[in-house]
Every structure is written in structure tokens, then in C-alpha cells.
Simulated scan of single mutants.
Amino acid sequence: MAGGFLAHSESVLKNHVLLSSSDLDEVRSGVAGVLNEHRLTPRARHLDARLYGAVTAGLQMCLLEYGGAVAVETAPSRDFVLVQSALRGEVRVRCREGQWSLRPGDTLIMPSNVSLELEWGTSTTQLLIKIPKALLYEVYEHLTGKPVDDPIDFAREIPLDAAPAHGLRTLIEYFCSHLAPAHGARSGPMGLRIAQQALIGHLLNTQAQGLRDQPAPEVRRVLPRCVRRAQEFMESCVQEVISLQDIASHAGVSVRTLSRAYQDQHGVSPMAALRTMRLNRIRDELKGGRADSVSEVAYRWGYQHLGRFAATYRERFGESPNETLRRRVRGQP
């Protein structure tokens, strides 16, 4: 991914100066604050570091230059994945997983959970993309329809002339286009979010081992977090007296937000869903031999008005609770 291919991205990122220093301690702490903890050792007297970049709410995209040759020893990156592309110069990377040499146009998805040793040559410019694993897993879940069970294993290298490299260049430029003012205005946080999801999705699709060749998953909705949390809370407290405010508080949103999200996903309100859960549990008890009478079960589940309970039950299941109980006594399904 040579510098000429990303000239626009480089010019955009250089409008966002994060660090400019020749002081070793200042350079180390400044780069560590944005990217990762590390040990920095100059190989020559000349150190003229520049760090440019966009620190957004999601991924971070930076340009890093040390000026002179340096050695870098990084700490394990447990909470994020780092993608490094060489624009100018050369960087040699070594760890217990292997070793690589990044020259202009090369891209490497850095190994996670291990320490790395890097040797930066003189006058080297690298583009780095820092992706929080929480965001990576979120995009993975949207792509596959299932949560991440194991650490994602990436194919490390993205050669210059390979199709994934062309796609990645395009998406880096697309991301940076949302950082640069266009006709006097930025695209806003929504544009950045769409751009970063597209970039992460491309890396997962082309580089995640075993993911590219998987059959497309069945189409399924990935529920908003507040709806998932509301459902989990209701299922765990189905026999307790809880209010809509209790459910919303546990889900971490307002009553109005939860009601709208739940209605959008399921077509019913949270309290209607809770009543259905309770009726299903009551029916299981009546059919499963865990009750001697309808009134016993109804009272235990909080129904004080038996007539109203029986009408609600019949509306839901097309028969009265007494009919369900009698069929169980007679041994009918």
C-alpha cells in the first residue's frame, strides 16, 4: 500500500497533529497514549517523531514517523487489533508467531496477545489502524449472526497487488473522506461509523481464517442490546412482580426508548411479552403434572382474579386452563 496510493488519506491525516517532538520520553508516552505501551530505543542520534491521526469513538487511524531508525518493543494488545501499512521506508516485525518485513505497499495485521519487536528504518512512514476488539466482535456478529466464541485468527499479510489490498486502500480513503471537510462541513458521526464498519467488515471477510469460505448465515435479526438485556431480565424474573421501569432500568435505557425498540423488534410491548412468558410457564406447569388445580397455579403466578386469568389464557391458547389440566389428567397431549 504505497504512499502514492494513499496520498489523499495521508494529507487528511496530517491535518490532525497529535504529537511532534524530538524528546524521547515525550515521544514514547505520546505514542503509547494513542496506540500501545512500548519501549522505544533510538538507533541513531536523530529522533524527529510525528504522530498524526483521527482518534474517534471507534477505530483510530494514524500516521507515525520517527525520523531516525528506532527499535520498538510493544506490550501485548489484549483489547485491540492493530493493522500496519508501510507508506515509506521499512519496518521489520518479529514475535514468537513469526517475522515479517513491511516495505511500501505491504500491510500486516499484527498478532495480538504477544509482545512484538519492531525495527524501524530511517525516514519511515507507517499508517496504523487500531481496532478495539469490542468493535471488531460487534461487526463480526452483524456479519455472521452469531457471537464470537473463539479469538479471531487472521491471515497476517495483505500483499500489495492482492485484491484485499485494493479493497482496503479504497476503504481507508473512504474513511478519511469523512474526516476531511467537504464543502465546508463534515459528514458527521454516522458517516464515520458506516465507514469504519465497512473497513472492519472487509478485513473480516478477506483475512479472518475460516470466515471467508463459510456459507452465508441464515438471515436473522441481531437484537439491539437494550432489547436483549430486557428479555434476559424478564426471563430471569418472570415469576416476580416487576414494572416496566424495572425492565428499562436493567436494560440501561428510558422506558420510552425500550418500549419503542421492543415494539420495533417483536411487535408487542415489553409488558405484553412478559405476560406471554408467564402464560407459557403456567401452561407448562398445567401440562407437566406440577399442579393439582388451576387456582393454585394462577395464585402462585400472581393472578388474583381467576375469571380474568381464564379469559386471558383462553385467548392465548384457544382453551381454558381447566381443559389443559383435564387433558393432562386423562393422559392426552
Rank of each mutant, 00 (worst) to 15 (best):
G167V: 14
T122M: 06
A185I: 11
S115I: 03
R28W: 08
G267A: 03
T74N: 02
E119K: 00
E119N: 06
A2I: 11
T206Y: 07
C237T: 15
H178V: 00
Q196N: 00
Y313H: 06
I152R: 06
A310D: 12
Q214A: 15
P159L: 01
A71V: 01
L143S: 06
V83H: 05
L6N: 02
Y262L: 11
S177W: 02
L128A: 06
A261T: 07
G67V: 08
E141N: 10
A272E: 14
L279E: 02
H142N: 05
H305R: 15
S22V: 04
L87N: 09
D25W: 01
R92D: 12
V219E: 07
V17N: 05
R283H: 09
C237R: 15
K287T: 14
F309C: 10
Y299N: 07
V294T: 09
M271G: 08
G184K: 04
E26S: 14
I129R: 03
L102C: 04
P321N: 03
E240S: 08
Y140D: 01
Q197L: 05
T122P: 01
D161P: 04
L258Y: 03
L306I: 11
M61C: 13
V255I: 09
K287Q: 13
L40A: 04
R220G: 14
V72P: 07
F233M: 07
L51F: 07
L286K: 04
L19Y: 03
Q126I: 15
R156V: 09
V227A: 05
V72T: 02
M277I: 14
G105H: 04
S101Y: 01
M1T: 07
T41K: 06
R103G: 12
A163Y: 12
V329T: 15
H183N: 14
L47H: 07
R283W: 08
R327F: 04
M110E: 10
K14R: 15
R92Q: 13
S20N: 12
V55E: 13
A195M: 07
Q231S: 08
I242R: 11
S236K: 12
P333W: 06
G53Y: 00
L286C: 02
G67S: 05
